[in-house]
Amino acid sequence: MSDRILLVEDDPKLAKFIESELTLERYHVTVAPNGLDGLTIARDAQPHLLILDWMLPGISGLDICLRLRSTGVQVPIIMLTAKDEVPDRVTGLNAGADDYVTKPFSMEELLARVKARLHRTQANDPDNLQFEDLVLNGLTHEVCRGNQLIELTAKEFNLLEFMLQNPRQVITNDRILAKFWGCDFISESKIIEVYIRALRIKLEASNSKRLLHTVRGFGYVLREQR
């Protein structure tokens, strides 16, 4: 579930640098070199986040903000600009920008702003279930941890969705068996261990931090690692 980012920047060297850094973070990046192209792509491609330079040939980043917001587009927008006076920041925010990064800036700061905006958007999406850096989309049936897409079987997906719907609650073996396998499997608790083990392998492939924990003799819980 790679997040799509549209970068609208007319400085080719800066655009290439930002694109490379975002790509290393596993974002899918599209670059537009001017305001008109940026506005068109923003409307057609529906990216998850926009990074806009304020000063652009043709249509400014400020105008792009105004036009998108006037048509109901609520994609998060981060504005890049050398304008660092308070009135300029107020103007950008009033135009609909969600965040503001002044040039020169550190790439670490921009990446942190991007991550924060995307996570905030995901958390507010009614189709998403999120716990720490684990996100499950019930509409698209996609699961990711951080920016890593995780392929699950249908049963694994359903079990993980159930755990995400009940975070920090210990779910008994009997409850899981009754929900997913029926009464005939009540005595077959080993089948849950198989699926939990498979989920752990996939969820921890790129991150060793454990989220699915065993409560001995009782069941399982989705919680932070202690």
Results as ranks from 00 to 15, higher is better:
1 M>C: 08
2 S>I: 09
3 D>M: 07
6 L>N: 03
9 E>I: 05
10 D>W: 01
11 D>I: 07
11 D>W: 02
12 P>H: 05
12 P>I: 04
13 K>G: 10
15 A>P: 14
16 K>M: 09
19 E>A: 07
20 S>Q: 05
20 S>V: 04
23 T>V: 05
24 L>F: 08
25 E>R: 05
26 R>G: 02
29 V>C: 04
36 L>P: 09
36 L>R: 13
36 L>D: 12
38 G>N: 10
39 L>D: 03
40 T>M: 09
40 T>G: 06
42 A>H: 11
42 A>Y: 12
42 A>G: 12
42 A>V: 13
43 R>F: 07
44 D>H: 12
44 D>Q: 14
46 Q>S: 15
46 Q>A: 14
49 L>P: 14
53 D>G: 08
53 D>L: 08
59 I>M: 06
59 I>Y: 00
60 S>R: 00
60 S>D: 00
62 L>H: 01
63 D>L: 02
66 L>F: 04
66 L>T: 13
68 L>P: 01
69 R>P: 05
69 R>K: 03
70 S>F: 04
71 T>M: 10
75 V>D: 09
76 P>C: 05
79 M>E: 03
80 L>G: 10
82 A>M: 02
84 D>V: 10
86 V>K: 07
89 R>I: 09
91 T>F: 10
91 T>Y: 10
92 G>V: 11
96 G>L: 06
97 A>Q: 12
98 D>M: 06
98 D>H: 06
98 D>W: 04
100 Y>I: 15
102 T>G: 12
103 K>C: 13
105 F>T: 15
106 S>E: 15
108 E>K: 14
108 E>A: 15
109 E>R: 05
109 E>N: 07
110 L>R: 04
111 L>V: 10
112 A>Q: 11
117 R>H: 14
119 H>N: 15
121 T>G: 08
121 T>S: 15
123 A>V: 09
125 D>I: 02
125 D>G: 02
126 P>A: 00
127 D>I: 10
129 L>M: 08
131 F>I: 11
132 E>Q: 15
132 E>A: 13
133 D>Q: 14
133 D>N: 15
135 V>E: 00
135 V>A: 05
140 T>K: 04
140 T>D: 04
141 H>C: 11
143 V>R: 04
145 R>S: 13
148 Q>S: 11
150 I>P: 04
153 T>P: 09
153 T>Y: 03
155 K>T: 15
158 N>T: 08
159 L>G: 04
161 E>D: 12
162 F>P: 02
164 L>C: 02
167 P>M: 00
169 Q>A: 05
171 I>K: 04
172 T>C: 01
176 I>Q: 06
178 A>G: 12
178 A>Y: 08
180 F>I: 02
181 W>V: 05
181 W>D: 11
184 D>H: 09
184 D>A: 14
185 F>M: 15
186 I>W: 00
188 E>Y: 11
189 S>Y: 09
189 S>P: 07
189 S>K: 14
191 I>C: 04
194 V>R: 08
195 Y>R: 01
195 Y>T: 02
197 R>P: 00
199 L>K: 00
201 I>H: 08
203 L>A: 01
204 E>R: 10
207 N>E: 12
210 R>H: 06
211 L>A: 05
211 L>G: 12
213 H>D: 06
214 T>A: 06
215 V>C: 10
216 R>Y: 13
216 R>T: 15
217 G>E: 08
220 Y>Q: 03
222 L>I: 03
223 R>W: 06
224 E>A: 13
224 E>C: 11
224 E>H: 13
